[in-house]
Amino acid sequence: MRKTLLLFSVLISFAGYSQTAKVDSVAVLILDRMSDVIGGLNSCSFKLNVSQDVTGDNGLEKKFSDDEVMFKGPDKMLVQLKGDDNHKGFWYNGKHLVYYSYTENNYSVLDVPSTIIETIDAVHDEYGVDFPASDFFYPTFADDILADFTSVTFLGRKTVDGQDCYHILADSKNQRVQLWISDDAMNLPLRFLVIYKDKPNSPQYMGVFSDWKINPDLPDALFDFNEPPLATEIVMLKKSNQ
């Protein structure tokens, strides 16, 4: 019965977009399944290896980052970002979001909304902060793909690092996105690639997931920031003031 209802909803979505976009119903079914699984989690953690093209004095330069993310319920998040140039973290406990720079030993406390998704939106809009792979945790992920891309195509089954997966391509005037989603009971994302066609030299952003843990027991204390010795509190500048 669950599969029948899910397929019915996918066909409705497909019919609604068929007049304006080229949409593969199999791709939508896979995206919906992935979103359903992620949306049903009580907690999770994963690692994400990121490579991205950044414009420098000599053109595009490849930057790398090893990220670790933990979510619990609707209101707790811990993000650790360790890149070529800096090491920083974010602690969110449902009341405050704390940004801390390990590199500079300073931190900032932000008043934010009471859920993870609302906080991610608010901090991005006000401070320009992007959280790794956060798009996958939006309940509207599949709908957003359909709304933002003129073509969504299922490219077949592939193998990534020895793991069977589904390969999906979403294309638009400004972006080209590829998704690799595990072909197993969980249908979790394995990697993604974004090509920004509207920017000079078409920079790329790739994320590779690893070490997924499903519904782990994460103590609440993990999401509370403990001020390190000699750390300095600073004021994070909003985008309008940068």
Rank of each mutant, 00 (worst) to 15 (best):
I120R: 01
L31C: 12
L48Y: 14
M77Y: 09
F154E: 10
P229Q: 12
T115S: 05
I145S: 02
V28P: 01
Y99G: 04
V177T: 07
A122G: 00
N226R: 15
P216N: 09
K158Y: 14
K199L: 11
I234K: 15
I214A: 03
G162H: 08
S210T: 10
S25N: 09
Y138R: 00
A122N: 12
D198C: 00
P189V: 03
K82E: 14
F131T: 01
G73V: 01
Y17K: 11
D121E: 08
V194G: 00
D121I: 02
G156H: 13
L7M: 13
Y17S: 15
D32H: 01
F149Q: 03
L81M: 10
Y127D: 08
Q204T: 13
T20L: 11
I12Q: 14
Y92Q: 08
P200D: 05
G59D: 05
L169M: 10
M70N: 07
V123Q: 07
P139K: 05
D144G: 03
N226L: 09
W212N: 01
P189F: 11
Y102V: 13
S25T: 10
A231N: 00
Q175M: 08
N241Q: 15
Y92N: 04
N241L: 12
N42Q: 14
K72M: 14
V152S: 13
P200Y: 10
G89W: 07
I181Y: 06
D53M: 00
V177M: 08
K158G: 12
G16A: 13
P228S: 07
E104L: 11
Y166E: 14
D144C: 01
K22C: 11
I195S: 13
F46K: 03
F71E: 14
N187T: 11
Q178V: 13
I168G: 05
L48E: 06
Q178S: 14
S240Q: 05
S134D: 01
N49R: 13
